[in-house]
């Protein structure tokens, strides 16, 4: 039942995206370097990626801090951040399985370009890197709970910004001039934009190494920051009540 509704809503969203971009393209709003079929491919793959990326394993941090149950985890011989990461991977795995029927159905509805195997390989690698960047971004957001216990507003803002600037909704190539250069320099681009642009071929094989390097830079930076925040946070853990 859950799978059925999930697939149903996804098919609807794919259909809407196709209609939207087709309408925009007939109004001649097309970005210069992206033909319509690439755009639809981009939007559909972005949607499928979001099914996996929107799983937030680190949400547990906030919940456990609020309820004070983080104490029991800290009393075990485990790295608690790694526990959150594993939990996220597990949930992601489950969602990935759910993506498969959705994928099949959306293939009936829209025609997505299927690139050469090495491009798919590069896409998957880039996606994996983006997944980790996204994990640490979520980790940092939820770690704010160490200080405020209430993180909803901040998360909402970051979510809006990242939806827009990560290339999930519109390709970053659409941003003009200076703004266009700026959005590519932001960490959000490493989450959706880089793998997607590799998929549709805007990032050519010659530029792959540079794109991966950029993702790795953000990943390292976020991971380092997360370590610092976690250390500072767990030192000031004052378990609520009890």
């Amino acid at each position: 039942m859950e799978v059925a509704t999930e697939v149903g809503s996804l098919v609807l969203r794919v259909y809407l995206l196709r209609s939207l971009w087709t309408a925009l393209y007939t109004q001649n709003l097309a970005p210069l370097n992206l033909p319509l079929h690439s755009m639809i491919t981009y939007a559909t793959v972005a949607l499928l990626m979001s099914l996996i990326l929107e799983v937030d394993g680190t949400r547990l941090i906030r919940e456990k801090l609020r309820e004070g149950t983080i104490a029991t985890d800290l009393m075990k011989p485990i790295s608690v951040p790694f526990y959150f990461f594993s939990d996220g991977i597990g949930q992601t795995g489950l969602h990935a399985v759910l993506v498969i029927p959705s994928l099949l159905f959306s293939l009936l509805l829209v025609r997505i370009d299927v690139p050469r195997p090495e491009v798919i390989g590069a896409f998957l690698l880039s996606f994996a890197l983006g997944y980790c960047v996204n994990f640490f971004l979520n980790f940092l957001m939820n770690s704010i709970a160490f200080w405020t216990l209430e993180t909803f507003a901040i998360q909402l803002i970051v979510r809006w910004v990242s939806d827009l600037l990560s290339g999930q909704v519109i390709p970053l190539t659409l941003f003009p001039g200076l703004l266009g250069r700026l959005v590519f320099a932001l960490p959000f681009a490493a989450i959706y934009s880089t793998p997607l642009l590799i998929y549709v071929g805007v990032i050519a094989p010659a530029q792959w190494a540079g794109a991966f390097a950029m993702q790795i830079v953000w990943l390292t930076l976020f991971a380092g920051l997360s370590t610092l925040v976690w250390r500072a946070g767990s030192r000031r853990v004052v378990i609520q009540g009890g």
Partner: peptide, 18 residues
């Protein structure tokens, strides 16, 4: 050495379950 210590101890909370 929280993790090393954790291997030596067991904890039971009446009001909270692990």
């Amino acid at each position: 050495a929280r993790q090393a210590n954790a291997r030596n101890i067991g904890v039971v909370f009446g009001q909270r379950s692990q």
